[in-house]
Amino acid sequence: MDSPDVRDQWAERSGEYSPDYYAHYGPDETSEAIREALDGLASDAPVLELGCSSGRHLAHLREHGFETLHGVDINADAFDVMEDAYPGLADDGTFYVEAIEDLVERFDDDHFAAVYSAETLQHVHPDATDVFEELARIASDRIVTVENEGDHRDDDPDVNYVRDELPLFYRDWREIFEAFGFEQVETRPTKRDTLRVFRASER
């Protein structure tokens, strides 16, 4: 499966892992972990979520005082669902319907105080990994990843398939973002992923 095929699968997603699916469950422990990872940022600091779907994590941030929220998702249905599930977020936030790698190259350096991803970067195709350097370029203070990283056994595959259809790529996020001038300052397990917090260092 190549990169356009992966993007098409998410753009047309319905049922399990769709915007409706995540809106039904609402904010969760991961939402709170992301909020904690962003402690210390000003209330008006611009924050970007990658693969925001219908906005449950952003809605949690908004409830806790964050005012300048942005989200990108390739599935246009996500924002229709957001209008019903989180109308205040839909009105106040800034949202983009496109692939992450197409969007981020248009932002200036340090455009966002923080960029975060919850189970989204793990689906970026190997052909599109230049986007990781772009994320480091546009984040002035913090990058947060909450991703499935596999168990790192020698025989663990580099890619797994969710429900035999959606590719999930295992990556070393510390190695990736420290190569682009960020320092890992926190790591801990979540219910099924690993949360990592990176802070900008000398670049």
Rank of each mutant, 00 (worst) to 15 (best):
S140E: 12
Y170L: 07
A136K: 11
I138A: 04
D154R: 15
E133S: 08
T145G: 07
V162Y: 10
D164K: 11
N160V: 12
Y170H: 09
V146H: 13
A139C: 07
D151N: 11
L135Y: 02
R171M: 11
V146T: 08
T145Y: 11
Y170G: 00
V159M: 08
E147I: 14
T145N: 10
Y170M: 06
Y161D: 11
N148G: 14
E165C: 01
R163H: 11
S140C: 03
R142C: 12
S140Q: 11
F169N: 08
G150Q: 06
V144T: 02
R137C: 05
N160H: 08
V159C: 05
E147Q: 09
Y170W: 14
R137M: 02
I143M: 08
D154C: 01
D151V: 14
R171I: 08
L135W: 01
E165H: 14
D156I: 01
R153H: 13
N148Y: 12
V146D: 03
D158G: 15
L166K: 08
E149I: 15
P157F: 05
N148K: 13
Y161E: 11
R174L: 06
A136R: 12
T145V: 15
A136I: 13
R174P: 01
I138N: 05
E149M: 10
R171D: 11
H152L: 02
R137Y: 04
R153Y: 06
Y170A: 07
D151I: 05
F169T: 02
Y161L: 13
W173P: 01
A136V: 13
I143R: 13
E147R: 05
R171F: 03
R137L: 05
D158T: 05
R142P: 06
V162I: 09
D155E: 15
E133T: 03
D154N: 04
D141L: 00
L166W: 14
G150H: 10
R153W: 14
E134A: 03
F169I: 03
T145P: 06
D155T: 12
P167D: 09
E149D: 07
P157K: 03
T145S: 10
D164W: 12
D172P: 00
P167L: 00
D158A: 14
